[in-house]
Amino acid sequence: MPAWRLLGELPQASIREEMRAQFIGEWNPWATHWFPLSELPIVMSDPRNPALRCHVKTYETSISMGRRRFAAVLLDGIWRIYVPAVTGESGAFEASKPLFEGFWRTADTTSQGRVGNPDWPVPDSGWTGREVFLASLDHVEQTAKRIAYRGYSSCRICGCRNGDMEYQFMEWVWPSGFRHYVDEHHVRPSVEFQNFISQWAR
Rank of each mutant, 00 (worst) to 15 (best):
P36N: 02
R179T: 09
T110L: 13
R130T: 12
G126F: 00
D119G: 09
D119Q: 03
V83S: 05
G8M: 01
G102N: 02
S154K: 09
G113N: 01
I157S: 00
N117L: 04
S176V: 05
L7M: 13
A201S: 08
S14C: 04
G129R: 09
S14Q: 14
W127G: 00
Y181R: 00
T110Q: 14
W172C: 04
E166G: 05
S153Q: 06
L7N: 12
L37C: 12
A21D: 04
R16I: 12
G88Y: 10
C158S: 07
L134F: 04
C155I: 04
L75W: 13
T128C: 09
T87R: 10
V56K: 00
V140M: 00
M44S: 10
A71S: 08
P118R: 11
R179Y: 06
I63V: 13
P2V: 00
Q22A: 12
T58R: 15
N49C: 02
V83W: 01
A13P: 02
E101S: 03
F35V: 13
T143S: 14
H186P: 03
Y149S: 08
R202I: 13
R130P: 02
A148G: 10
Y59F: 06
R48V: 02
W79N: 03
W34F: 06
S198G: 15
E9S: 03
P29R: 03
E60D: 12
A85W: 05
